[in-house]
Simulated scan of single mutants.
Amino acid sequence: MARHSACQEQSMIIRAYQPADCGAALSVIKAAAEADRTRQLPAEALSLSLRENAVIAFTGEGAAAAFAWWHPQHDQSYLFEGWVHPAFRRRGYGGGLLTAAEVFVRQHGGGLLRARTYEDITGAKALFERKGYIVERRFYTMRTALTPERVLEAELPKGITVRTFERSDLEMLVAADNEIFAEHWGAVPRDPETWERYMILSRPHNPNLWIIALQGDEIVGECLCGAREHGDTQNGHISIVGVRRSWRGYGLGRALLTYGLRALRDHGFTTASLHVDSENHTAINLYRSLEMDVVRTRLHYVKKIKA
């Protein structure tokens, strides 16, 4: 991929990512994630997720400065994710990565290009808005403390049992998850292979922290928890919590979330967080009732790229 003339730093080189660039890309992601308080990605995530849609940027001296990829989505759009090393910010690298993604989408027939960043990452926010992206949705990060004295008890609805996840549950869990979130904004039905790659192989996974609710042999609810980052023993995260429509309104969601919080505490975590659509007021009220507070806002941007 050729150097982009729109970049501010003329010595930068932006080219297609190659497998040999894995270490350089991970170093950029690690530094950027630490500076921005965002999720780290393990090496497995790069090897599992990368296709042709990825670029890496270097300085004229050969230092890795930035990395980005963009994934095709179910609605013919692409999701852009990019990282710029803190030492090389405000030099045009972010704009160069975004331009590369826009060129790709334009050359492949055009469509929607989506991106996201946190409201307090002002540089990325300014870049997207300067490039003509608009906010289409906001998500909150909510967090709670898991103190030793906190009472975490909940009564399950009659006929419901809970247990931890087993590998043989995967196909049934994916089917339940697809149904639970079918009407949620941005939901994408996933097959077991894709779901496993995203939920198990590319993030911290402990099956003892995945709680499933059953009516007989059918999964009717889920609360999937884990460490926020690989190696993090203090900050837990709830990746998914949800209940099938037929069981909503019976207190199952609250019970599952309580079970998840208790499991995290029992495994030594002192905080728990989750993400929630800012327009899902029912869920937000539930989380607030369990002492969760909004601590951050994630902005979801979109731009139409013409062919």
Rank of each mutant, 00 (worst) to 15 (best):
G216L: 03
E291Y: 07
L156M: 09
V103I: 15
E102S: 09
S11W: 06
H230A: 08
R163F: 09
M142R: 05
T271W: 10
R15V: 08
H281G: 04
L48C: 10
R203N: 03
A307G: 10
D217Y: 06
R228Y: 05
I56G: 05
A43I: 00
E291R: 14
R228V: 05
W210A: 07
W185V: 12
L48H: 06
A35T: 12
T194I: 00
T271M: 08
P86D: 05
E136I: 12
H4S: 10
R190I: 00
A20H: 09
G95V: 11
Q73C: 09
M142C: 04
M292T: 06
D293H: 09
E171N: 15
T122E: 11
V28Y: 05
L156H: 04
H85T: 10
L79D: 07
S77F: 10
T297Q: 08
K304G: 08
D169K: 11
G110F: 02
A25W: 01
L201V: 00
S27L: 12
T271D: 05
R130C: 10
R39W: 01
H300S: 07
K158F: 07
E61M: 14
V55Q: 07
A154V: 05
L274Q: 09
G110L: 02
T117I: 04
R150H: 13
A283H: 11
R203F: 00
F139Y: 10
E153S: 14
D191I: 01
R91N: 08
H275N: 14
R203S: 03
M172A: 15
D120Q: 10
A68S: 13
W83F: 15
C22W: 02
G249T: 13
W185M: 05
Y140S: 02
R254L: 12
R91V: 04
D217Q: 13
T270F: 08
G221V: 06
H108Q: 07
T147I: 05
T164C: 14
E222L: 12
C22I: 13
A272Q: 14
L224A: 07
Y140A: 02
T161F: 02
E183A: 14
H281D: 11
A124N: 09
D21W: 02
R150N: 10
E222M: 13
N208Y: 01
S77W: 02
R288T: 13
P157K: 14
G132I: 08
G110K: 01
T297A: 03
L113Q: 08
C223E: 04
S77E: 11
G221P: 09
I121P: 00
L79K: 03
A45M: 03
E193M: 00
P86I: 01
V294S: 03
E61S: 15
I240T: 14
A101Q: 07
V276H: 08
